[in-house]
Simulated assay, not measured.
Amino acid sequence: MTLPAKFLIFAVLGLTPIALSYGLYPPITMQFLFGIEAEGTNFTHIFRAIMGLYFANALFWLLGAYKQKYRLAALYSLVIFMFGLGAGRFLSLIIDGMPHWLLFVYLLLEIGFGVAGIYMIKKSGKEELK
């Protein structure tokens, strides 16, 4: 298995608990992790939609990990996903101030995964030329 494929699997493993923390049972997890109330159908609906978005991307990344013809597209989607999340968090940091420490850690991880994804795209491109 190539390094970019392993990276995609690693990203899925890292993203899965985050996705579950957002959407499996938001009233409990949001209170436990961040001290916020996530009561009511609208609130849980939004968090479960976020979980679905995370899992949809994770499934595509798994496809890219195991099917070489989708690998480059999966890496690009990972970079866009991570930098998109990071950009939103960075904007919030500027406008709203410092969030819960765990959300700041998520920002650092998203930037790290995005940068690593760019490296993997370059590495994946070189492997395809062989």
Rank of each mutant, 00 (worst) to 15 (best):
A116H: 01
I36T: 13
D96L: 11
G112W: 06
M82L: 01
Y70E: 01
L78Y: 01
L107F: 15
L72P: 00
F43M: 12
I111N: 03
A73R: 09
R48S: 09
R71Y: 01
Y106A: 06
L59G: 14
I95V: 15
G86L: 08
G88F: 04
I46T: 14
D96S: 14
G64P: 10
F32Y: 13
A38C: 12
G52S: 12
K67D: 11
I94V: 15
A74V: 09
F60T: 02
F113D: 00
S92D: 14
A38N: 07
E37I: 11
L78C: 08
L78S: 09
Y54V: 03
M51E: 14
F34N: 00
N57C: 11
E110K: 00
R48L: 04
L75Y: 07
R89S: 10
T41P: 04
G97W: 03
G52E: 01
Y106K: 05
A74G: 08
T29I: 04
L62G: 09
F104K: 08
G35I: 01
I28F: 14
M51I: 03
L63T: 06
H100V: 13
I94D: 01
I46S: 13
Y70C: 03
G97R: 07
I46G: 03
A49D: 15
V79Y: 03
G40D: 09
T41Y: 14
Y106R: 03
A56F: 07
D96T: 10
L93N: 05
R89H: 13
G86E: 13
S92H: 11
F83Y: 12
A58N: 08
Y76S: 00
N42K: 05
H100Y: 01
I111T: 00
T29N: 03
G52A: 11
T41H: 12
I94W: 06
F43Q: 12
W101T: 15
A38K: 03
A56P: 02
E37T: 14
M98W: 12
L72W: 05
Q31D: 12
L78G: 02
P27S: 06
Y66D: 04
G40E: 09
L78E: 02
Y106I: 00
A58H: 08
F104Q: 10
M82F: 02
I95S: 13
A87V: 12
M30V: 00
F34D: 02
G64N: 11
